[in-house]
């Protein structure tokens, strides 16, 4: 079991004849930030809703802190905080009143925590302003403050940085990192902002059409996203043969567009070009490329390049 905070086994969810999730297996370790990446409708929110108890799985199990949710979630779920889709805030109350309401609902005795969390999320000076008059970003911050009540060990954040201004995004990023480093919290965060997720998460879970396609650490992602050389040629088979036999490298990939991505960067480009020329390889295009998280994601799901992701 180790440090598993959340363990999901063969989790599936079906709505009529449509599978929203299919045989998802996940294990979240304590003290890490997991970025959940997927396009709209991939199953990210569905997954979070089932973990938090809002939705019921068709099949599979969810274990939180080593205990199955079938055995009753009441005490287990108090150790998690969830912000799913929209923040749970009441429009005709102020930020402080919303926090007080949530404290009462949770049975928390420490009302000083309200002010601390409002300060942490930059809402301390909202005074008597009603939440219905807040901007979407302010409501999102209040939602995050609410989620942090009760000091949960696992945070489920469904696109928490939507509608936040750049400074707000940085604040939340720093907050999440602080929560992980100093309080050893585990965070599962979904976002369309891949560059931001790249800076925040320690691990990445790629989900597509209800299936988990890949799970990798930040270090593994950096390994995959390393630079490569893209080569186009009139005879791709000949090029591949030359790379294998003459340059003694198998670390390349033939892409769908009939180009070759070479991951072993040659130390001497002049010599490299000479070898290709001497073996009769006609190069039509040669470019040095760095893979971004988005490109890696596209590579994993095998999709097109227009999938609603934020590119900065």
């Amino acid at each position: 079991m180790g440090n598993a905070v959340l363990e999901i086994k063969n989790l599936s969810k079906r709505y009529n004849s449509q599978w929203a999730l299919k045989n998802v297996n996940l294990r979240l370790e304590k003290g890490r930030i997991y970025g959940l990446i997927g396009k709209n409708g991939a199953g990210k929110t569905t997954l979070m809703r089932m973990v938090s108890g809002l939705s019921f799985p068709t099949d599979g199990t969810v274990e939180l802190f080593g205990r199955s949710k079938d055995n009753g979630i009441e005490n287990i779920n108090r150790r998690i905080g969830a912000l799913i889709e929209y923040p749970a805030v009441i429009g005709n109350m102020t930020a402080k009143e919303n926090m007080h309401f949530q404290c009462l609902m949770r049975g928390l005795p420490n009302f000083e925590l309200e002010d601390e969390l409002l300060e942490l999320t930059g809402l301390k000076d909202t005074g008597r302003k009603k939440v219905k008059n807040f901007s979407l970003g302010m409501k999102q911050r209040l939602g995050i403050a609410v989620v942090l009540l009760g000091s949960p060990e696992l945070l489920l954040l469904d696109e928490p940085i939507n509608a936040l201004d750049p400074s707000g995004v940085i604040e939340i990023r720093n907050l999440l990192k602080r929560l992980r480093e100093f309080e050893n919290k585990t965070i599962l965060i979904s976002s369309h902002n891949l560059p931001e997720l790249y800076q925040t998460a320690t691990d990445y879970i790629i989900i597509h059409n209800g299936e988990v396609k890949d799970i990798l650490t930040h270090e593994e992602l950096e390994e995959h996203c390393k630079s490569y050389i893209s080569i186009e040629s009139t005879d791709i088979n000949k090029l591949a043969m030359v790379l294998e036999k003459e340059l003694k490298t198998g670390n390349f990939q033939v892409m769908p567009d009939k180009s070759i991505s070479l991951y072993d960067l040659p130390g001497n480009m002049e010599q490299f070009g000479q070898v290709l020329y001497d073996n009769g390889v006609v190069v039509t295009k040669l470019a040095a490329v760095e893979t971004s998280l988005e490109e890696y994601y596209m590579h994993v799901i095998g999709g097109d390049t227009n999938d609603g992701f934020v590119q900065e």
């Binding site: 938090s52 979630i73 009441e74 779920n77 905080g81 969830a82 749970a88 309401f101 609902m105 009760g150």
Partner: peptide, 10 residues
Amino acid sequence: RTIQEAVCYG
């Protein structure tokens, strides 16, 4: 979403 919040909280 206050009902959903209560259910999420356990």
